[in-house]
Amino acid sequence: MIDLTLKVNGSDYKGWKAIDVSIGLEQIAGSFNLTASDRWHGRDKAWPILAGNKCTVLLGETTVITGYVDEANPEYDAFSHSLNVTGRDATGDLVDCSAIYKTGQWSGANLLKIARDLCGPFGISVKADVDVGKPFPKFALQDGETVFEAIERAAKQRGVLLLSDGRGGLVLTRAAQTLIDAALVKGENIERGSGSFSHKERFSQYIVKGQAPGGDSFSEPAHHTQLKSQKNDEAVTRYRPLIVYAEQGDGSTYADRAVWERNVRAGRSARLQYTVTGWEYRPGKIWQPNRMVPVKDDFIGVDAEMLIARCTYTLDDGGSRTTLELCRREAFDLINLPDKKKKIKRSRKAKDKDELKW
């Protein structure tokens, strides 16, 4: 079994008795919760780990979190000593802190530029492994929003996900399509499985409304043209309409937005959760989010390739395990708002005839 190492101030700390580490597509910062006990393994004094310390978390040889200790909680009695340590990736500061940048406005800047300007003061590097799209004619911070909220608002308009790279940086990316060389199979490597299928956030009709410039003087509301597009979710059999107001675009953009709204909500309505033994699926390869994995489970009724949305690595008296949260890839197919001057070419996944099983 591989071990977890917490690196703080040049020292390596192992031998944790309770471990809970979580990383995923829906959290910009990975988190950890570790507990050491049993008389500190021969130590009379507590490990010198303090809140605010820089730290790195490794599972075996794989670095999964690089950031800071949020809390350090020592405890003792007449028989034992213990220390509980929690922390997050450096990108956790983007979630907590307010967005501040000069005048708070950009003109002609793309997503990567905006993200780097906002993350720079925190010492957080930003890289993109996908095309981040065209520059924004105008982009302005909103009062009271955090750094993460500001970047996420821009990222959604360019169809981009925000992920921690596990090494203290931010990555602009999209949902992966690459299959890992392993599978989740009922009766073989799955210890426990469960499914959650909900229609609470699904609707029978998705009506996207907005307006587009009607001429050269489009800054005046009188020159704006009202636009609307509607798509249906045949899996929702009762009347449940939803009106969505689009950020910008033209008629074809709104048609894509309606299909995206339907498909993403359908994708996020179906979740699978599986627990497997250990943290690795192959020696030296740990389970990680944003990977596709084949799933065969005749009880829940799935035989498909699913996206790993979250991994939670645990250790307790029952041993080490990984809990995987899976969903359809559509759940993270963020819409990419196209250039108004270009004709929209919709992907296969965005087609209105796309079949939605769940």
Rank of each mutant, 00 (worst) to 15 (best):
Y239F: 09
I243S: 13
R158F: 03
V132Y: 05
S219E: 12
S196D: 07
E261W: 01
R268S: 00
V147N: 02
G133I: 02
W260H: 11
A212M: 14
H199I: 12
E145Q: 02
L179W: 00
G168Q: 00
Q230M: 07
D216T: 13
I180P: 05
R262L: 05
A150F: 00
G193K: 10
P241T: 07
G168R: 03
V132G: 01
K186F: 14
S164E: 03
D250P: 09
P241A: 06
A155D: 04
S194Y: 03
G251Q: 15
G187I: 08
Q205V: 11
V130Q: 04
G169A: 09
Y245P: 07
G159Q: 08
T178Y: 04
T146S: 15
G133T: 00
G214R: 07
R265M: 01
R265G: 03
L141Q: 07
V132N: 00
A212V: 14
R158N: 00
K200C: 00
Q142F: 05
G214M: 04
L272Y: 04
R238K: 14
Y239W: 08
K231V: 14
R238F: 14
G210T: 03
Q211D: 14
F148W: 05
P241N: 06
Q230G: 08
L184V: 11
V132A: 00
S198C: 06
G169L: 12
S229P: 06
T146A: 12
D233I: 08
N263E: 04
F148Y: 09
